[in-house]
Design a protein around this nucleic acid. Structure first.
Lengths: 215, 215
DNA sequence: GGTTGTGAAGATATTCACAGCG
DNA sequence: CGCTGTGAATATCTTCACAACC
């Protein structure tokens, strides 16, 4: 199984979303050119990304949508599914819970945690909210492998450590802080403020054409 | 004024946050090594990034925090400030409004828009919510230069076009769709679902050590 | 004819390593 | 000495271009 880079995985996920949509519309096959346009990359990029999945795709007819999706599933999904815990049931946390609710069966947010006792005990969008102290116990009990951090900056590092102690290997971090984690734990930072500042900077420079960002 | 890449700008913004924090703590100066550790990049990377700002920084003493911050301000901030409009006052939109409320004087979200008449007329976190139809008029009236899209996927493209028609040159897009925009408009996609899928993928591969992501 | 799969070339981005300075 | 600034080397990512194939 070929090794695939961070960026390539991001694009594969985008391809999958597009293909799912096409499958819905009963489109049987697609060309690299067409997919490239929808994903806003070059056709060569699409074909190169597909190399890592092993080949299929016949000249003149393009790629079979169903087969393509199956290959993506095999590569991207854990066979037994994966579950995530969200820490910080504030505005952003609730927005994310609402967004994910019931979308992906193989990748669900199954528990939320918050240090505010008033929030614990309730459920947000079908997701139970527990007191923060229970994180370790619940995470092990529910076999959670992923964490989403939506707490304020000051609390982020401690929460990350608690998640890691509970056996989590991957974190999506929305706090504007760089987490210090041991090797083997994968962190994806989503820094909303930084993104807006970047956009503000480039929006101001009319002449240059900087490359389009990655999510 | 040297041209600076997308990625470099992202790191400069991170450096600024760290330096602001240090300035608060009265730290007078910092070495590239120390800053690198806090920002989780290499010291060489820090020094390279600083080349685009013009030089300062004295051997053996490092960089003067105040001077460094001033240089970052000159590079990153628009002298007259910039303002953003947020479209889509749902869960995520409100979370972002709450997050930004009163944080950065030079970069404020000054108006929100929503197509739900029930939401229009009120204010969220001090930010007035207008009906979507008013976008063009208000954006020009308030001289808004940036847009934040937090509407569902189906509406995202139309909203982007309305923003661009209103003169906006930079967009932060939270909808899981690739926007088609004319050249000269800078788009930063923040795709929460994709991020979680990426993390899920890498969290599962114990052997490899993929690079840490960018926001 | 038209499209895929891929080696090779080309861009970009990052790191090395060391001269120069305080 | 220790640290900065930077040319050169390296690594990574993207595109080109073309043979193979339907």
């Amino acid at each position: 199984m070929a090794t695939v880079s961070d960026k390539t995985i991001g694009r594969l996920v985008v391809y999958r979303r597009i293909l799912n949509d096409l499958a819905h519309k009963q489109v049987p096959s697609i060309h690299s050119q067409d997919l490239a346009q929808r994903a806003q990359v070059t056709a060569a990029q699409v074909r190169r990304d597909l190399m890592g999945l092993g080949c299929f795709g016949t000249p003149t007819h393009g790629y079979d949508v169903a087969g393509f999706l199956e290959a993506l599933r095999q590569r991207l999904d854990a066979p037994q599914g994966q579950t995530a815990a969200l820490v910080g049931a504030g505005n952003l946390g609730r927005a994310i819970l609402a967004y994910f609710a019931g979308r992906r069966p193989k990748l669900a947010i199954v528990a939320a945690f918050d240090n505010d006792p008033a929030k614990a005990g309730r459920a947000v969008r079908g997701c139970p909210v527990y007191p923060l102290e229970d994180l370790g116990v619940r995470a092990k009990e529910l076999k959670i492998n992923l964490g989403i951090i939506t707490v304020p900056e000051e609390a982020a590092q401690a929460v990350a450590e608690a998640l890691i102690a509970a056996g989590i290997r991957g974190i999506v971090n929305f706090a504007p802080a760089r987490l210090r984690v041991p090797a083997g734990v994968y962190v994806e930072d989503i820094d909303i403020t930084t993104s807006l500042e970047k956009v503000a900077y480039f929006a101001r420079r009319p002449a240059t054409t900087p490359p389009r960002s990655k999510s």
